[in-house]
Amino acid sequence: MTLDFFSPVSDLVLAHNELLSPQALGKKIKIHSEKKGFPELGDVSIVVFGVLENRNDVNYIGEVFQLNEIRKIFYSLFPGSWNTVIADLGDIKAGETVEDTYFALKTTVCELVKQNIIPVIIGGSQDLTYAMYRAYDTLQSMVNLVSVDAKFDLGDSSKPMKNNSFVGKIILDEPYNLFNYATVGYQTYFNSQEEKDLMDNLYFESYRLGEISNNVTLVEPVMRDANVVSVDLNVVQGSEVSLKQKFSPNGLNGKEICAVARYAGISNKVSSFGVFEYKPSKDDEMTSMLVSQILWYFIEGVNCRINDEDFSDDRSYQKFITLVEDQELVFYKSNMTGRWWIEIPFLSNVNNKLKRHTLLPCMHQDYIDACENKVPERWYKAFQKNSI
């Protein structure tokens, strides 16, 4: 691990931690401190760290920020019945340039994922997701990214990258590793028609706020197929956060954003998770508490992971076949968890990018719809991407 990138957790937070209950989370995790140095990561499964970079925020006016308030509250929470060892690495300081910070974050995430450690990042501006994504350049050929966000953040990719255009850069910059991009909780009036059309033309997935609020379980199969999950705190409705953090009267409520974080944690594929667009202020307690609970639910999810994707053993699943519009659809249901998958047929005459995506996570409802002669939308989009 490149230690030079990190500054230790502040003595102020550590002093506060000393006053907590022996059962509190802050007493159970390894912490990078000035006195004890960088923690040993041999048995660690999850690391939390901050990235103090927000210069590519379109509204940046020179303010600096710290994560002390989040840490104080996060440390004071009580862990669940967890079997994972957690470490707080401190913060990646803003580099000389934003690109320096990106490099530090990319290098760190790459090293951690290689060691099967899940990085949980608390950040400034959401363009840091670009560096998280680039960490996978040498790790795997195709990456699935889920953004929990009110906006698509496609932006104008011909201009320098900002926190409202980083996805456009991800799509257009080489190497082209992005297989699927899904936005969860978007609000139509914050996105231009051109961006909506581009999402459709690229067969990317988007789930409106209303859909998620009506049925938050829609998020589960999307997260089950994700590698990188990025949460923009502006997706949360204004009544749930502090004054400076307020963005829109509509958005996911506290319970919904925590459920989404838990689904991300439960996914066996999610190997990095970030919460961005945090804006500290004097009346900050509500946002700090919400971010702490989002992190808590993600870690809770990781501790509930079950590997139910062994389809080599006939006894571990049930198989269902149905015919929709002359297309044979094959579904699998895990006997262990009850989770569902749908098979994507290979097209032998095209250059196939989907070798490890033959089974697409789906819901029981998709099978019911297929029995009623409706093609599941997730299957259709994945099939079309496979045909390009």
Score class of each variant (00 low, 15 high):
residue 8 P to L: 03
residue 8 P to N: 09
residue 9 V to Q: 02
residue 11 D to K: 09
residue 13 V to G: 05
residue 15 A to L: 10
residue 16 H to V: 10
residue 17 N to K: 09
residue 19 L to T: 15
residue 19 L to I: 11
residue 19 L to Y: 04
residue 21 S to P: 09
residue 21 S to F: 02
residue 24 A to F: 02
residue 27 K to C: 12
residue 27 K to F: 07
residue 28 K to F: 01
residue 30 K to F: 00
residue 30 K to L: 11
residue 31 I to Y: 08
residue 35 K to V: 15
residue 36 K to R: 12
residue 38 F to M: 03
residue 39 P to F: 00
residue 40 E to N: 15
residue 41 L to Y: 00
residue 41 L to C: 08
residue 42 G to K: 13
residue 42 G to M: 06
residue 42 G to T: 15
residue 44 V to D: 05
residue 44 V to L: 03
residue 45 S to H: 13
residue 46 I to C: 06
residue 46 I to T: 12
residue 46 I to A: 04
residue 47 V to Q: 07
residue 48 V to F: 12
residue 49 F to I: 09
residue 50 G to F: 00
residue 51 V to G: 07
residue 51 V to E: 04
residue 52 L to Y: 02
residue 54 N to R: 10
residue 55 R to V: 02
residue 56 N to Y: 01
residue 59 N to S: 14
residue 59 N to W: 02
residue 59 N to G: 13
residue 60 Y to C: 02
residue 60 Y to Q: 04
residue 60 Y to L: 01
residue 60 Y to G: 07
residue 61 I to H: 14
residue 61 I to Y: 13
residue 61 I to G: 15
residue 62 G to C: 02
residue 62 G to V: 02
residue 62 G to D: 05
residue 62 G to W: 00
residue 63 E to F: 04
residue 64 V to W: 03
residue 64 V to A: 13
residue 65 F to V: 04
residue 66 Q to G: 11
residue 68 N to H: 10
residue 72 K to A: 11
residue 72 K to I: 09
residue 72 K to L: 04
residue 74 F to V: 02
residue 76 S to Y: 01
residue 76 S to H: 07
residue 77 L to P: 08
residue 78 F to V: 12
residue 81 S to W: 01
residue 81 S to P: 08
residue 82 W to T: 09
residue 82 W to N: 10
